[in-house]
Design a protein around this nucleic acid. Structure first.
Length: 853
RNA sequence: GCUCGGGUGGUGGAAUGGUAGACACGAGAGACUUAAAAUCUCUUAUCCAUUAAGGGUGUGCGGGUUCGAGUCCCGCCUCGAGCACCA
């Protein structure tokens, strides 16, 4: 050590004062060895005394941070002392800090969950110490296909598997050191929870936002259930990657499209990650255009017309043909006038049964068939044009009819070329004139479709509706005042009634044969005891709906439940909700951009319109965390590159894993997990441990430089830049070790507090070891003095023509005149100025001076 | 095809238009040690020079704006993510 120190002095001299100031020498220090001897005397002493020093040091330092015992003790203590339980009724400064709850569809948490949870928790701890009553709940999204498929894979009944997963996940979640409000945890498969999921369903139903439709839906042959559009990724099932096919089924839909304009508009006022907002905008897909009526010539007396939707009314003169989607309802009527009806019907049949993947394939050639005997008349020029059915037109968008303009549209051109249609090269005309001329209606279209919420599966909340044959006719025939006894949903879906609130939940029975058999019905359809019900209206025998709800309905409102979870009577208590919601900070994966986040917004908007809540956006601030990958690839079992957080917690402790993950890079970027990253953090925390247990602290003030550290760590935490916060803290500890005599108790406490959100265990232990009272996590966040920031020297950079030529120390706040004087006094500067005149001087206060010659 | 992000040492990554590479890993040299580990010290973008002091180049490529550009503008290349026959 002695020799090393003298070496340091030599090289510091040779490499220049600036550099040595920048990179302070590091020095081990022990409590037992007087620090003066260790630091100042050692270099002058002989080899013999260095040995003595070393021996003493070895005894006290380096000590390894004994995380095992400490983490165990504090995690129990925190729960006992309710350190992280805010007073939900009386809290003065509520801050709702939420992360997306996990679905327990695996053995346990993976490191990606840990990354997200830690990222949120650090923010919550920071806010708690900054004076907020932070509420950070946790639960499990355990209903649904993910969990059910996993249970099937394991050959365990999902109800049993849920209990196993619950235990595993909660045990793990207790180890990662998060400040969860455990008393408010919830599980979506718990009847006390899904009772209210069903209540939400009935609320939407009665408000006229749910309807039943026989429609071609996405069908996953492997999961044997329908999928929402959002769950189909490039023609494949989001869960199992099978090719999705189409199937005609009777389904329940939520009218999310009614809220499309609001869902879009509100995005502007949300403080969300920009990429998520963009993804939602794209998904909602607003486009403004014109609807134009074309009359049809069927060769009969019958007067028919259809409407097309176009964003390019200015191309109307170039319309060469018209195309209709095979699924179009209007097309069915038209068939009566078609001369080649059989061929057309054959084409429609084939188109409908084409697998999705085939239909959307890039290189697919366009197909279609002409409707013989039917002509459309272009309203702009009276020209008769042929009408085709072709599957490149989508039925769910616009009117299902499209005007073919091959001169201005690539797809239309490809179609025209294939079927040898004349390509009219008519010039563009003025847009507004065109609209007027053809009497077009300006309309806004959205690509968003209604949300299909039925699932033909077992493991979900049963849809709380009952169908009564006896009432169906009555409802249909009801007129005038009679209609008032029915809700909007009941009128729209004659015979269907929502289960009354007092009869909720509709409990999911234990069914041995829970596997879907694939006929398009839920396993519940085979359980007579379940589906036999009394009509909520007339009391006669009726039949219960046997499909269950999409999991995304479970998670579309859970944030409302957390603060009110102890209330068994209402889904969410109005006072509590007004106090805690909307969520102040929400963190989760970007993969939920158009699923969970959109559905939650929709449900919240509906609840607002039903006057059940007083806000229309659930998450004021949302940040998407990045993805943790391994060796450049997504982690997955099949690739064998899954990182198990437990192993790291066992070996190094939760604090080390937390900080390793956060040090990889900005939270919103994610990163590649490497074992190498652990080493630096282990070293750092050992240094922190020895600092806390072995240093002597003076009664002085905060060190000058600590003010800057406090400022920067505070700003970094606020902006989720945990990686740079950690680097600031590393610089701080290096500074402490460099001048161990100059560390005050104030320095120490401020440092521990700044580190506390990132490494809650070690800081809590040291906080009590050094004799502080109470939990550090309830202590107040350190403050810095703005003046102190200014009372420092800085390196004034001297540039000549924009090139750095020299650096000198100067006082902060120095004036331009003084700075110039100092610069010109430097010999090195003058070397460059010789024989030149200074034309201009640029001065950046506390930074640099640039001389232009 | 459209939209949104990226491209900086051997690696992960830092840089309100103002010293590019903070912090960390790795590597090299040294101290300590019987030895190893741990720990500590120094070096570490690159090229030229080296006795010393220095100097040149450098943030995907090509231009531009500016006293000054990783950062702003224009045109490309490239990687990633999302959407995708949306008329």
């Amino acid at each position: 050590m002695k020799k090393a120190s003298s070496q340091k002095t030599v090289s510091a001299k040779s490499s220049g004062a600036v550099k040595s100031a920048k990179k302070p020498a590091k020095m081990a220090v022990s409590k037992k060895e007087p620090k003066k001897a260790a630091v100042k005397a050692a270099p002058k002493k002989s080899l013999k005394s260095a040995k003595v020093v070393k021996k003493a040091v070895k005894k006290a330092y380096p000590k390894e941070y004994p995380f095992k015992e400490i983490e165990k003790r504090w995690s129990t203590n925190w729960i006992e002392k309710k350190v992280y339980e805010p007073d939900l009724k009386k809290a003065k400064n509520p801050f709702y800090n939420l992360m997306m709850f996990p679905y327990p569809s695996a053995e346990g948490l993976h490191v990606g969950n840990m990354y997200a949870f830690t990222g949120t928790d650090i923010y919550g701890r920071f806010k708690r110490m900054s004076g907020f009553d932070v509420f950070e709940p946790i639960g499990l999204d355990g209903f649904g296909i993910h969990s059910e498929n996993y249970a099937m894979k394991k050959g365990v009944h999902p109800m049993k598997q849920a209990k196993v997963a619950e235990k595993n996940f909660y045990n793990q979640l207790k180890m990662i050191g998060n400040g969860f409000a455990w008393e408010e945890r919830l599980e979506t498969y718990n009847p006390e929870y899904y009772k209210f999921t069903q209540w939400i369903f009935t609320s939407l139903f009665n408000a006229g936002l749910a309807y039943r439709k026989n429609a071609p839906v996405n069908w996953c042959p492997s999961c044997k259930t329908v999928l929402s559009d959002e769950q189909v990724i490039a023609g494949r099932c989001e869960r199992c990657d099978s090719e999705v096919s189409k199937k005609e089924l009777n389904q329940w839909f939520f009218r999310i499209t009614k809220y499309a304009p609001k869902l879009l508009k509100n995005l502007d006022k949300l403080d969300w990650s920009e990429k998520v907002k963009t993804a939602q905008r794209n998904w909602i897909g607003e486009s403004k255009g014109t609807q134009i009526k074309f009359s049809l010539d069927t060769g009969t007396e019958k007067e028919l017309s259809v409407e097309v939707f176009t964003t390019r009314p200015d191309t109307i003169m170039g319309v060469s043909f018209m195309v209709v989607a095979p699924e179009s309802e209007t097309l069915k009527e038209l068939l009566n006038y078609v001369q080649n009806r059989e061929d057309v019907e054959q084409y429609i049949f084939e188109a409908k049964n084409k697998p999705e993947v085939e239909r959307i394939a890039d290189d697919k050639e366009k197909t279609g068939i002409v409707l013989k005997g039917v002509k459309a008349i272009n309203p702009a020029n009276g020209m008769p044009i042929p009408l085709y059915v072709a599957d490149y037109v989508l039925s769910g968008y616009g009117t299902g009819f499209v005007m073919g303009v091959p001169a201005y549209d690539e797809r239309d051109l490809a179609f025209a070329e294939k079927y040898d249609l004349p390509i009219l090269n008519a010039p563009l005309i003025d847009r507004d004139k065109a609209i007027k001329q053809v009497n077009g209606k300006e309309v806004t279209q959205y690509r968003l479709r209604d949300w299909c919420v039925s699932r033909q599966r077992y493991w979900g909340a049963p849809i709380p509706l009952v169908y009564c044959e006896h009432c169906a006719e009555k409802v249909k025939k009801a007129k005038g005042a009679e209609r008032k006894q029915y809700s909007a949903g009941e009128l729209e879906n004659p015979g269907w009634f929502a289960v009354k609130e007092k009869d909720l939940p509709v409990e999911l029975p234990f069914v041995k044969e829970f596997r879907p058999e694939g006929a398009g019905t839920s396993p519940l359809a085979a359980v007579k005891k379940f589906y036999t019900a009394k009509c909520p209206k007339c009391g006669k025998e009726a039949r219960r709906e046997t499909d269950v709800c999409d999991t995304f309905l479970d998670s579309s409102w859970y944030f409302l439940r957390y603060p009110s979870v102890k209330s068994k009577k209402v889904a969410f208590d109005s006072k509590t909700t007004a106090k805690w919601l909307p969520v102040n900070m929400y963190l989760g994966g970007a993969e939920h951009s158009v699923l969970h986040l959109l559905y939650s917004r929709f449900v919240t908007m509906v609840l607002k319109d039903l006057k059940l809540v007083n806000f229309d956006e659930p998450f004021t601030k949302f940040r998407a965390h990045g993805l943790v990958i391994k060796d450049g690839k997504k982690m997955s079992k099949s690739k064998g590159n899954v990182v198990n957080p437990d192993d790291y917690i066992k070996q190094f402790g939760a604090d080390v894993l937390r900080m390793t993950l956060m040090f990889m890079g900005p939270l919103e970027d994610g990163g590649d997990f490497r074992d190498a990253g652990v080493v630096g953090i282990v070293r750092f925390l050992n240094r922190v441990w020895n600092f806390g247990t072995s240093f002597n602290f003076s009664n002085g003030e905060l060190s000058q430089w600590m003010h800057k550290t406090i400022k920067e760590v505070t700003e970094d935490l606020e902006n989720l830049k945990y990686n740079t916060a950690i680097s600031e803290l590393m610089v701080a500890i290096n500074n402490f070790y460099d001048k161990p005599d100059e560390v005050s108790k104030k320095d120490r406490d401020a440092f521990l507090k700044l580190l506390a959100p990132l490494a809650p265990f070690i800081t809590e232990e040291l906080w009590s070891v050094v004799g502080n009272k109470g939990s550090i996590h309830r202590a107040s966040w350190p403050e810095y003095d703005k003046k102190a920031l200014k009372e420092e020297n800085f390196d004034l950079v001297i540039q000549i023509n924009g090139k750095v030529r020299h650096t000198i120390r100067a006082k902060r706040g120095i004036s331009e005149e003084k700075a110039l004087k100092l610069a010109l006094a430097e010999e090195k500067v003058n070397q460059f100025l010789e024989g030149e005149t200074i034309k201009k001087v640029f001065f950046v206060p506390d930074r640099l001076i640039n001389l232009v010659i």
